[in-house]
Amino acid sequence: MSAHGRQVPTGRAGRLRLRRSLATALRGADLLERKLRLLLDREHAERRAAEEADRIWRDRLAEADAWLVRGVLLGGERALADAVPVDRAFIDVEWDALMGVRHPATVAWTAPVRSPTEPTPSNTALAHAETAYLAAVPAAAEHAAHTAAAQLLAAEAERTRQRVRALRRHWIPRLENQLSAVELALEEAEHEEAVRRRWAATHGGG
């Protein structure tokens, strides 16, 4: 017997081998389905977090833009240029792993620090704009990190789903069919052997 070019084992040893292969395939499918559930749960959590961060980011950005326009109207573009600190913001992304999938986990945010010699915003509107922008930046970073994590987890979930489908729809049924064929052949062989023994017994072993 053969299937897709591969030799199907026969006899009692073949039956044992097929039973072991089938048990391994079933156990593997169960483990992959468990992995898939964990990946999907985390992906959904990451997408919800990304949506919340996106809402905060856009709200803060709109607020900051509105204050910025007021501040520039009050103090001019020169006031805006003077209000920008020399220091820059820093964002550090820490990574985690779930079921072998590395993905962004947390975002560490360091706001720019204005030195004592640097001028502060010359009017209240620019001060409000600075505060709103400082709130928008980490929210944007959180949104990007959660979105990237969701995409990485979704990609691995799809690969895992394909592996489960291959096992459940193709490999496991093939092993079950092969095992059934081997067991049927063994039953027939045992039946024929029993018939021969009865015949030999009734004919004196001749």
Rank of each mutant, 00 (worst) to 15 (best):
A13C: 01
V107G: 01
M1I: 02
A144R: 09
G14T: 01
A79C: 13
E187N: 05
A64W: 05
A108N: 13
L36T: 02
G71P: 06
R198E: 15
W95E: 12
P116E: 09
R15D: 07
A29Q: 07
H103V: 04
I172W: 00
H170Q: 14
A136E: 05
F90H: 15
D65C: 11
A83S: 15
A64L: 02
L36P: 08
S2C: 05
L80K: 11
L22H: 03
A141V: 04
G5N: 09
E63H: 11
V113G: 02
T120M: 12
V8K: 01
D87V: 04
W171F: 10
V137R: 15
A189C: 08
R88L: 12
R37F: 09
L134T: 05
A141K: 03
A53G: 06
H44M: 14
A157W: 12
A181M: 12
A189P: 00
L167H: 03
A141N: 08
L134W: 02
A154P: 04
A97S: 14
A108E: 11
Y133P: 02
R27F: 03
R20L: 12
V93C: 02
A3S: 10
D30R: 07
L134A: 08
I91W: 05
A139C: 08
R12W: 07
R48L: 14
G75W: 03
L32D: 04
V72L: 11
E190W: 08
R169T: 09
S115R: 15
A81D: 11
H44K: 15
L186H: 06
R102Y: 06
H143T: 02
L134E: 09
V195C: 04
R12Q: 13
Q151P: 00
R174P: 03
L167D: 10
R165H: 07
I91G: 03
L40S: 01
P112K: 03
E183L: 13
Y133Q: 10
H191M: 01
R198W: 05
E46H: 02
V107N: 07
A64V: 04
Q7K: 14
L80N: 07
A135T: 01
L61K: 13
V137S: 04
R58A: 08
D92E: 14
R70W: 10
A181V: 08
G206Y: 12
E43V: 06
R6K: 14
T202Q: 15
W95H: 11
A53W: 06
E94S: 14
T24M: 03
P138F: 01
D82P: 00
S115T: 12
P112M: 01
L16S: 14
T147L: 14
V101C: 09
Q7P: 02
L68N: 11
L26D: 07
A139R: 06
L152P: 00
E52W: 00
L184Q: 12
D54E: 14
Q151C: 09
E190P: 05
E190T: 05
R48V: 11
D54T: 12
R169K: 03
D54G: 15
S2F: 10
T147A: 09
A25T: 00
S115K: 15
P119W: 08
R58M: 01
V8H: 08
L31W: 00
W67E: 12
